[in-house]
Design a protein around this nucleic acid. Structure first.
Lengths: 155, 155
DNA sequence: GCCACCTTACTCGGATAAGGACTGTCCGAGTCGCTAAGG
DNA sequence: CCTTAGCGACTCGGACAGTCCTTATCCGAGTAAGGTGGC
């Protein structure tokens, strides 16, 4: 999985706490990562429609929906792509004993198992929102984390 | 995910239906794939202890355990590696507002969410055995698939 | 007829190149806010 | 004092190299079976 997924998730948490657009340069400074490469990942979020971009002075990124409406799965699929990790190449149709047309009416059993597992993975990620991540961060810091973050964003 | 995972799973189903060791060349012919590259993936199964190798004439691969005792997860982890897809780089410790030691006593919330999702994925794969795959294949073919496979293996 | 040995062919295993994807970087197009001049 | 035009700087967006991992391949070490010669 791309490392940019981690960056994008952290950025979404930060953006959710800001009321003004946050420029990519500020996000890069906060996370101490490459500014240009972080921009590339944020572009993926923009293409997926999760964030809205404001150009020009005082511009930046802001969420298009409220934080509870954005799930972790949305961010992961935006950055890493929505294509399934396992891709069935229909091996059963090749070789000296190819599967007949009747057998192929249903997907390959292996593909079904893998698809079910990925669905469970997606369900688990879809059950957590960006707002929940922010709340967890706040709880881990004893209730001062989000306040400090908002203060840093204003400064 | 590596494409070799699919090959390895199909190979496990075939091997489970044979009473004699099956050479890699025969498996490659059956699936119509590269013989040398398939051998590389089978080596991964051998290192993981899922299959036993017999060298020399009439040698090949055979399962070390009964098919119901081998789960799909075992095969996937043997070929693709057991390392988690998401790796936390501890971004929270960097930047102008680094997380304090107290906050880091627990793993990052994002890492916990991703780990839980991967655990759900593993649980789903662990609940299906190679024997179940073979049974499903037999059911899809109306009860003649495994018989034909065994016949081809004997020939 | 039985045994030991050798030949033979077949098996897996690790070490070795080529291609594609993720990582990292750069500069250009577009836009908003600020300033200053004019009415 | 208000309007408006211009300027400037800041923003994102897509196009361009570097590096690591997956894919694909080869040949060598080792082994078990089968045949052959001797006893």
């Amino acid at each position: 999985m791309s490392a940019g997924v981690e960056w994008a998730l952290h950025c979404c948490v930060v953006i959710s706490q800001a009321e003004e657009p946050v420029p990519a340069a500020r996000l890069a400074t906060f996370h101490e990562v490459s500014r240009t490469y972080l921009a590339k990942n944020l572009q993926a979020l923009s293409r997926a429609g999760l964030v809205r971009t404001t150009e020009g002075r005082d511009g930046g990124y802001e969420l298009t929906r409220s934080a509870p409406k954005i799930s972790v799965l949305d961010v992961v699929q935006a950055v890493d792509g929505a294509e399934p990790a396992f891709r069935c190449t229909e091996i059963r149709r090749r070789g000296p004993l190819p599967a007949t047309r009747e057998m192929c009416q249903r997907p390959c059993g292996i593909a079904r198992v893998m698809a079910a597992a990925e669905q469970a993975w997606r369900d688990s990620l879809a059950s957590v929102s960006v707002a929940a991540l922010a709340a967890d961060l706040d709880a881990s810091t004893g209730g001062t984390g989000l306040e400090g973050l908002r203060g840093w964003l204003s400064a």
